[in-house]
């Protein structure tokens, strides 16, 4: 089924819903997501009962959550999918209703998207970081994230080393002190185009 057909059918079912087609995907508002997915799953026409993939993309101006739905019940008909759904949320308040009540398969994938992009899936039963450790700050896959530079000693590292009886060369100490005075953390430089 083409995205345009799916769009017109969804508009007939839910009058007043706003759906846009972008790159063969249906873009909708966060508050419409659950009822649309539930309808796609239950209606005999679509039977999109298999949620294949959830991921999030950082487009700098906004964050986007992407869902790929397929049908296990009625392949290999043309309606077997995929139907791609998209939801956009602002960067500073990224909240999307969770799909776990509809699909168990969303559980780990939403945790992954939360861990990496910081999208908060409201209603998720156990929204914790899944790969990074507890207490990790920042969201590694956002475009403005820069990792810590592991090769540079910071002042806390110097203190720890000296406490444990390791002699730290003066130049490292000086650099660490400079960083501390400037109130900065050691951040890695992003590689330039030529270096890659």
């Amino acid at each position: 089924m083409s995205p345009a057909d799916a769009k017109s059918k969804l508009e007939a079912k839910f009058p007043g819903i706003q759906i846009q087609i972008i790159n063969n995907a249906l873009l909708m508002k966060p508050e419409d997501l659950i009822r649309v997915v539930q309808f796609l799953k239950d209606s005999p026409e679509f039977k999109m009962n298999y949620l294949s993939n959830i991921t999030a993309v950082d487009y700098v101006e906004y964050l986007e959550s992407v869902y790929h739905l397929y049908s296990i019940e009625n392949p290999p008909h043309s309606t077997a999918g995929p139907i791609v759904l998209k939801v956009r949320v602002p960067r500073d308040n990224p909240k999307i209703p969770s799909l776990v009540p509809v699909f168990r398969g969303a559980e780990f994938q939403e945790r992954e998207a939360y861990d990496m992009m910081g999208i908060v899936y409201e209603g998720h039963p156990d929204l914790r970081r899944i790969f990074m450790w507890e207490g990790f700050e920042g969201f590694p896959l956002r475009k403005d994230y820069t990792p810590e530079d592991a090769d540079v000693l910071e002042w806390e590292d110097v203190e720890w080393l000296e406490k444990h009886g390791v002699k730290v060369p003066e130049e490292y100490k000086q650099f660490a002190r400079q960083l501390k005075d400037a109130g900065k953390e050691a951040r890695a430089q992003k590689p330039t185009e030529k270096e890659i």
């Binding site: 009962n49 294949s52 296990i72 699909f103 168990r104 398969g105 969303a106 559980e107």
Partner: peptide, 8 residues
Amino acid sequence: DLAVSASI
């Protein structure tokens, strides 16, 4: 049913 809904 669980296999389908959990994307197995």
